[in-house]
Each structure stands twice: as C-alpha cells, then as structure tokens.
Write a protein that binds this DNA or RNA. Structure first.
Lengths: 188, 188
DNA sequence: ATAGATACAGAACAATGTGTTTAATATATT
DNA sequence: AATATATTAAACACATTGTTCTGTATCTAT
C-alpha cells in the first residue's frame, strides 16, 4: 500500500479516535475529522464513503485483532503480552483489554461505549460459538442453543461494561470469577 | 394544558414514531419531523429544544408507563389489560409488551432498538432494585449486589431483544421460563 | 534518474439542514 | 367579547455535505 495512503488513513483513524473520546459520535462531523486530521476534504472521501464506513473499518481493526488473538490464531503484526494459553478465554480477553491496545479501552468507556460494545458483542459471539457451542461445552438444558449463546455473550459484554464503569478497580481474575459465577450452571 | 399544545405534541410524537420505525434516528432530521407532523418550524422548537430532548420525552412516556404498571402503582389514564397480580413481574412485563401499547414493540424491534433497549434497561433496573434487591430476594453470593442487579437486568433486556429478533414466536410464558432458567441460581 | 501513475490540496458548488427572529393569524380561555 | 397564547410563514446567517475541478506533490517501476 502506498505510503501516502497509509499515512492519511492513520491520520484519519487517530483524529476520529480522539474525537470519539471527546464527544458523541452523532455530533462528530466529517468536517471535524478533516480539520483534526488536517487533510483535504477530497482526501477523506476517497478513503471513506461516509462516517459510518469509517466507524465500521475502525471497529474491524479493533475487534478483529482482539478476537483473532483470543481465537489462538497468529496475531499478525501486533505485539501481544497476553497470558499463557491455558487461561480461560475470558480472562485472556480481560487482560488483553487491560493492556488498552490501540486505545480500545478509551472507546469502550467513552460516551460512545454502546457502539463499541455492540461490535464487541457481535465478534465475541462468533468466538463463543467456535470455542464453546461447536465443541459441545454448553450444558444441555431446556434452553435453545442460540438463546444460551446469546445469554453467555451478552453477560460477558455486560460484565466488561460494569467493570469499565467501576474504573476497572477489580483485577481481571476477580472479574472472571464474577462472570463465571453468574453463568456457572450453564457452562461445563 | 392547551388543546392546541396537546395536539401538536401528539402530532410530533406520532410523526417521530413513524419515522423511527422507518429509518435510523441519526438520519431523521428535524425537517423530516416537521414535514411529517405538518407543523411550522417555529412550533417544533417551542415544544422541543432538540431532537434528543424529543427522544428523551418519548422514552419517558413509553417506559414510565410500562414500569409504573409493573410497579403495581396506579396506571394513570392508560388502559391496561395485564395479567393478575400474582404473576411474575417478568411475565407481566412480557405480556404488557405483547399488547404493543403505544407502539413500543415497533420501536424496540426497529433499527433503533438499541436506543430504546437502553432506556428500557435503565427503567427496569430501578424496578428490579425496588422489587428484588431492596426486598432481599437476591441470593446472597460472592457477587457484589450491583453486579448482580446489573446482570439480572441486562439478562432480561437481552432476553426481550432475543425474543423480538425471533419475531416473538414463543409465548410470554416460554420466554419467562427461559429467562428464569438462565438466572435461577441467582434469585430466590 | 526519469516518466508515468497516483494521491493529495484547495477552492468552489449546489443542496440541505439548523436554530432564531419577525410579524401576522388562528385558536383557546375566562 | 376581550385577552392571552399557540401557531404559522417567511426570511436569515450559518454549518455541513458530497461532488467537481485544477494544479501540485509524492510514490513506483524501469
């Protein structure tokens, strides 16, 4: 990829991330992004069709990485100091979040957290299906499997949200305990 | 309240609700609302400072009613064909939703569902604190009470969301069973 | 190193939306 | 009927949007 493209793309992402930690997504104009990134108007629109597409691309970079890591797949070009492989996937994720790689924490705890928690959830659901549902690790119960998957996924996301709203006072280990306690009768 | 005010306020709410079931909140302009409600520009701004305030007022009307009902308080001027008082609060809520009073279902299952589910959650949390936490009905466990309240609240909202995404194929009774099964070890 | 391709900047644009002001009209309330 | 108040229509300055144009800077390949 052209050096210039990489630079502007990065400038746009940085500006966008900065703005997102400052104000509401809806209140961020393309003009704001252009001014903050200090690029030409035309340039923005050659890179991104709309603000929504920019958001989508940002989320894919953010959560693609964190989920890919948790999947145990190669990490690409990112550095990762995560825990050993035998930890719970959930503990793994929390530790990864705590590292605040790519400022994901700032976004997850900003006033725009809902947007990012939604993306987090949809990616996490895929992970849970792969790591739990497809391996038969969900307790057979009277509950439909997709209800169960949704419940377990949502509960983790809500746990993360709760943790963030408490300024992450608790350790990832404690949070994992809370979460597993809340769903322990549903997962083997 | 002046008859004229009531009429325009209602016209604005109706227009807004219609638009919300059609397109994204962010893509609805004040101009759209004005055109749909067929009112003067000035009139809108005398009633609502911004689109956000309109949304807030709408949500308060919607969820104020449904939660008030579930609280067992007088229903005000609304008609309600809800089940008997000894039903679970949750069954009560689901039945109330099923009646689709004030088109709340349309909004909860529209592309703007997140907005309304958020309001639903914040109101439901108050209800759960009043009906469960304050009455000592939550199982004493290793979990902090606010974590537990949040988990139970979120799980119900997620259950409703799941139900809606399934076009409410299941009965309120079945959904209540699912939900209670998912949290049964946490509530007495 | 040069040539051709590509990305960027800057300016201008029509179109749309915003929030406010003005003065006139219509409708309630008493 | 008289007064108060809600609504209207028009105009406004301003911001944002998405596109088009031309010229310039920077890359890539040979």
């Amino acid at each position: 990829m052209d050096r210039r493209q990489k630079k502007t793309r990065e400038a746009i992402f940085t500006a966008f991330t900065t703005l997102l930690s400052e104000k509401n997504y809806n209140q961020i104009s393309v003009q704001d992004i252009i001014d903050t990134a200090d690029i030409g108007r035309t340039t923005f629109y050659t890179h991104f069709e709309t603000k929504d597409f920019l958001l989508k691309d940002l989320c894919e970079e953010l959560f693609g990485h964190i989920i890919e890591t948790a999947m145990g797949l190669p990490h690409g070009h990112y550095h990762c100091t995560c825990a050993s492989a035998d930890d719970s996937v959930f503990l793994h994720l929390l530790r990864h979040l705590q590292e605040n790689d790519r400022n994901i924490l700032e976004l997850l705890s900003s006033q725009n957290n809902e947007i990012f928690l939604r993306y987090f959830k949809s990616n996490l659901k895929r992970l849970i299906i792969t790591q739990y549902a497809d391996k038969g690790l969900l307790k057979s119960s009277s509950l439909p499997e997709d209800y169960l998957v949704n419940h377990i996924t949502s509960s983790f996301v809500e746990t993360v949200d709760w943790w963030l709203s408490h300024n992450m006072k608790e350790s990832p280990e404690t949070i994992t305990e809370y979460y597993l306690e809340a769903i322990k009768y549903l997962v083997n």
